[in-house]
Nucleic acid binder design. Structure first.
Lengths: 146, 146
DNA sequence: CTCCTTTCCAACTAAATAAGTTGGTATTCC
DNA sequence: GGAATACCAACTTATTTAGTTGGAAAGGAG
């Protein structure tokens, strides 16, 4: 039931890239090693995570020395759901929401589906209406309060 | 990120017990094998699941022949959260909501926590305000519509 | 009291998933 | 040409999930 480290590290990396992007939208490339070291994440592992985000056009890259990773668009244009769906799959709580789930052996009256569907709606509601920019802002507000 | 079969089977068993309970609150013991067969669930596995629910005082038992399992109280008095917390643990989406999470290696500014906490609130909101009776009723309404 | 049916319980195993590593290739700047 | 970087696939390890096995204890029926 937990968010895996893929989703977690992905969000963290996106937030770090977002800070760089806001500071200087034209030239905001960050080196992977920098993020990985700062966050205590395995470099090779983070690379594989961020590669998926590139394939989803959320991140762009510059190769060679002086290269690095940057957001592909403004943090306000990137939904949290886009990041998480790419890294975690569907991110719902119950697998049998599909009509033809062959793997589910429960024959009829699957009561757990009632519960799962209600939770799934709420999860979607949160992550599809929250951008990377929102995450940054929430974080700053949280810091102010303390 | 999925609800495990523990939670799923647990909810299903509770709903089956609830139906028996409503039909006859005084003598509503169901044999485990009956539920397991009806639902295509391994008997031994379901037994271990329901044992946890007993320990949490959600289910009571009668041993020996003519024995079986029954709800310990009315379905309207059993929250879905009680069932799921017992079987799935905390059922939140992010592990680092605790202050002293030693396992988390991310040093600071854990942006994923912002997202997770918002989702966690919503999940709790759903399952702590939904009883086993509600699940049954929702199911019946759903059937009517079709 | 004996047999049958049931719950109860602990230890074991198998399968799947998550998490991370290794060893390299391709680009680009200096 | 060398250093620094992104890119990529195959492999390994650790953890969790999903069960299974083999019984012991309790209670009712004959």
């Amino acid at each position: 039931m937990k968010l895996s480290t893929k989703g977690k590290y992905g969000l963290i990396a996106m937030a770090d890239l977002a800070i760089a992007y806001i500071n200087n939208p034209n030239d905001s490339y960050l080196v992977l090693k920098t993020i990985a070291n700062k966050r205590n994440i395995s470099e090779a592992y983070l690379e594989r995570i961020i590669a998926k985000l590139k394939k989803a056009d959320l991140v762009r890259t510059q190769r060679g020395s002086l290269g690095g990773y940057s957001l592909a668009k403004h943090p306000s244009e990137i939904k949290v759901s886009e990041v998480l769906y790419e890294l975690e799959g569907k991110l719902d709580v119950g697998g049998c929401s599909e009509v033809n789930d062959k793997s589910c052996k429960v024959k009829e009256n699957c009561f757990s589906q009632i519960v799962c569907e209600e939770i799934n709606v709420k999860i979607r509601d949160v992550i599809e209406n929250m951008t990377i920019e929102d995450v940054l802002k929430s974080y700053l507000n949280k810091m102010k309060e303390q």
